[in-house]
Design a binder for these strands. Structure first.
Lengths: 196, 196
DNA sequence: TCAATTAACTAACAAATGTCAAGTGTAAGC
DNA sequence: GCTTACACTTGACATTTGTTAGTTAATTGA
């Protein structure tokens, strides 16, 4: 079955952080739902409570919203593997200000908040894992804030491609520029400068 | 006792989010330690595991580190009341890259990671509270990242003083500029422009 | 009290980034 | 195969922000 590979991916990832029993594994398989999406599919809408937390096995996913001028602002770019959703809204079951969209074709595992709570109640290991994932999301955002506040646009781009070398082949520069807090024209200039 | 007022502050804050029993209250009083610090006191060092999580009853506290050029970078400015520490390092008991320092004289309640874990084990309400505090820290950092990426320096300053009108009387503009990702000279220019 | 330090402001100039208006190339759809 | 749409680039110019240096005022410490 195609989904075996997907579950194995999530289980391997969890196993790097916590020790999983056969029962933990069974819970994951029971409650996580494998899904495939085509490029450019929007999988969560703004102004709605996010339905799922997504684990990205393959493909690239982003969060974005429209600003007052009607331009898309990309606030998160996921590099697989990893979880993605509008965390705050998902956790509190409140309306999200952001869309979740597949940039490329994606293999995902998704779970509802209700089912996530069930797994966390039944599996100590999975609860520990979910807390760690959450902590990593916080650490990630702290780093991101610090870099946006203290690095130049060029430094941010250089660091970004060093951290995510594969992303250039799959994600439009348009989204990368927005994520890094600059205009596409500025990113073009920076790239020309670096490559010469 | 002077510390009654401090505990009441924390308990009132917790009560806005969860329901506390007399036992929960007793646990807080038992494990949180009231402390007073003078202006400019450094209360956590970089390259060490943070000893405490701090609840700020009064006063202003910041996180900062030195960059490669030897300049101070302020990464967090606390506006009382609220918790402050180097969250990621505190949670994982790893070395922090940042100092924690009192900007003004401060009344704080502090707790070690060990004691925090004890309280969270003994009190469901306090565990819920700590998870909520943690989630709020994540939401805060997501908002901060988004604003740093998509707003101009002037927009960030205007929004900052709208959100924290009292801060100007207590926190040097030097720290505010760094926190908002700009140079002090730029902040001076922006302030002159706004006030004319 | 006085000297020394430091925060804050200012001004002139440099550098980085944004804006606007093209042009090029590629990929998708008819 | 052609057209359309769109990502990406480029160049000229405007604006913002950084840099450097000097001044002022307030604070700190001897």
């Amino acid at each position: 079955m195609f989904s075996d590979k997907l579950y194995q991916h999530l289980l391997d990832n969890a196993a790097t952080l916590v020790s999983l029993t056969a029962a933990d594994t069974a819970l994951c398989i029971k409650y996580f739902e494998p899904v495939l999406f085509a490029k450019d599919t929007i999988i969560e809408q703004e102004n709605e409570v996010p339905k799922y937390l997504y684990y990205v096995v393959s493909g690239f996913v982003r969060l974005f919203h429209y600003n007052e001028e009607g331009n898309q602002i990309t606030t998160h770019l996921n590099c697989p593997p990893g979880f993605i959703t509008s965390y705050t809204a998902f956790n509190n079951c409140t309306k999200s200000a952001e869309y979740v969209a597949c940039i490329t074709a994606c293999e995902l595992l998704r779970i509802t908040k209700t089912d996530l709570d069930i797994i966390c109640k039944q599996s100590i290991a999975f609860k520990d894992y979910s807390i760690l994932v959450f902590q990593m999301a916080l650490a990630y955002n702290e780093t991101r804030s610090r870099e946006l506040a203290s690095l130049t646009a060029e430094q941010r781009y250089v660091k970004f491609i060093a951290d995510h070398p594969a992303i250039l082949q799959h994600v439009p520069l348009l989204y990368i520029a927005s994520f890094l807090g600059m205009k596409p024209e500025s990113l073009s200039r920076i790239r020309r400068k670096i490559f010469s």
